[in-house]
């Protein structure tokens, strides 16, 4: 086994499989990570991609792609308000609990390092 495979297996072995899947399949970029954190902190936010870009200090075009992907993966919901496409956090209890679990786990440095590794690996 190569060194990188060995490192990967060590980084996977002791991670909750649900969180690992959450990172690999849903929060697989740093913009998505920022957005997930933003919606966790501000759970009743309802706004357009342009305004969410303003709140998070990002480019609207980048944000829009990430918001759509998060909506596809069930973390966000899309609503249409008289011509505006707006994004809100899902009302699905299980997803919200998983999100909370992820954010709380991120308070631990070791978990964060592992999560960052998986995001970078997924992006490459």
């Amino acid at each position: 086994m190569s060194t990188s495979d060995d490192l990967a297996s060590r980084l996977v072995d002791d991670m909750d499989p649900r969180l690992l899947e959450f990172i690999r399949a849903r929060v697989n970029s740093f913009i998505k990570w920022d957005l997930v954190r933003f919606f966790y902190d501000n759970p009743h936010t309802t706004d357009t991609a342009a305004n969410i870009a303003r709140y998070t200090g990002r480019e609207a075009a980048d944000i829009e792609q990430a918001l759509l992907a998060l909506a596809d993966s069930g973390i966000l919901q899309i609503a249409h308000v008289s011509g505006y496409q707006v994004y809100t956090l899902t009302t699905d209890r299980a997803t919200r609990e998983l999100l909370q679990q992820f954010v709380l786990a991120c308070e631990d440095r070791d978990f964060r390092v592992k999560a960052i590794y998986h995001v970078i690996r997924g992006m490459s």
């Binding site: 936010t45 706004d47 709140y55 609503a79 308000v81 008289s82």
Partner: peptide, 18 residues
């Protein structure tokens, strides 16, 4: 609730809005 005036204004005009 964090939102923008334009969305709120449009939302209030709808029946069963957010």
């Amino acid at each position: 609730i964090m939102t923008s005036p334009e969305v709120t204004q449009a939302d209030l005009r709808q029946v069963g809005g957010l």
